[in-house]
Simulated assay, not measured.
Amino acid sequence: MQLKKLAVLCSIALLSSAESALADLTIGVSLSATGPGASLGIPEKNVFALLPTQISGEKVNYVVLDDATDPSVATKNARKLVTEDKVDVLIGSSTTPATVAIAEVANESATPQVTMSPAALPVERNKWVFRSPQQNSVMANAVVQHMKANGVKTLGFIGFSDAYGEDWLTSVTAKAEAAGIKLVATERYARADTSVSGQVLKLVAARPDAILIVGSGSPAALPQTTLIERGYKGQIYQTHAAANQAFLKVAGKSAEGVIMPVGPVVVVDQVPDSHPSKKVGLDLVKKYEAQNGAGSFSSFAGHAFDAYRIIEQAVPVALKTAKPGTPEFRAALRDAIESNKEVVASHGVFNMTAADHFGLDERSHVLVKIDSGAYRVIGK
């Protein structure tokens, strides 16, 4: 009789434990803490140590993995997170190629994914994938409008030979043409390249009024320093993916005068108090730098926080339908991310729709010029 009673008690305990585990929300993260994308992934990783461990009364478990900036490792990470860790949502990765690899797993497993890179995907592979960074076309528009306003007639381009570089090239080509700006030279380079002398010689020979460099983090400094060494005197533009201390440190004085679009959190002390992201951004920067040192904050930390923010605001809605740990909850979370409105984050305000899984508008960027190694807000 006692053994039977003990068995019943054990069964109840196991059921209670299973129900408790079922209620935990598990967020799986794959980012580039090593490899060419490390200057993006390290600040992103630092953010996950600062995030709350509860959302709407549900315990949150974070499983953070390094994909070493390698799409094949990112795929393995995503499969592990989905099959072994049973995550409710995926975050990642830091770079576009690795992000695209994770997206394959997100779609196969019907698991929502919030990326930290502005990866472009065809419609059929976009259902489960959302982004925290600004869409490249939005940032390209800001850059081209500045070029037009400042008399640029001819443009040179050098960018990563991957999905990030190609998406920017597509966006800027169309917008430059519409603005009456002619693209006179197009060059590419790999993230791990150690020299771009050949490409830069061709760009300088074309004598464009301005050159756009499409890179990220420290690898974006290679064309920058080479152009200055080769005597290029025109205006150089960079993208928001170069907005971090690694780029500034490696590029050094050669970065002086560079113009780029950045999220408001990068220069949060310079944006007006009326900006919706001001309060959120100030709080994030304060917490981040208290943990990691003064001046350590970068744009990429903001993308990681915003990915969390998108999920945080969707969880209460999804919980009305199902509990974490179930396919029903993952589907409800996806739907909530897509339908939530005016989600205020550090880089802007998200309004996702079925047709737009970026969700950021003109409030998501300001133009800055690098002056004495710091970002200074400029007008359009």
Rank of each mutant, 00 (worst) to 15 (best):
M1K: 14
S16Y: 11
E19Y: 14
A21D: 12
T26W: 08
A33G: 14
A33H: 12
G37W: 01
G37I: 03
N46S: 11
A49N: 15
D66F: 03
A68G: 09
T69L: 06
S72I: 12
A74K: 03
K80M: 13
V87W: 00
V89W: 01
G92H: 04
S93Y: 02
E104Y: 02
V105R: 00
N107S: 11
A110L: 10
P118R: 05
V123L: 10
R125E: 10
K127M: 09
W128N: 00
P133Y: 07
N141E: 13
A142S: 13
V144T: 05
A149N: 15
N150A: 07
G156K: 02
S171W: 01
E177M: 07
A178P: 06
I181D: 02
V184Q: 08
A185L: 04
E187H: 07
Y189G: 01
R191Y: 05
G198L: 06
V200D: 01
A210Y: 02
I213N: 06
V214A: 09
L222P: 00
T225H: 09
I228H: 11
Q235E: 10
I236L: 11
Y237R: 07
Q245Y: 05
A251F: 04
A251E: 00
K253L: 11
G263N: 10
V267N: 07
V268N: 04
V280R: 02
G281D: 04
G281N: 03
L284S: 02
K286F: 08
K287D: 09
G293S: 06
G293R: 05
S296I: 11
S298V: 12
A301C: 06
A301F: 06
H303T: 12
D306C: 08
V317L: 07
T321I: 14
A322N: 05
K323L: 07
P324N: 04
P324Q: 03
G325D: 02
I337D: 00
E338N: 11
E338W: 09
V343F: 05
F350P: 01
M352W: 13
A355I: 12
A355L: 14
H357S: 08
F358P: 02
D361M: 07
R376C: 10
K380P: 15
K380E: 14
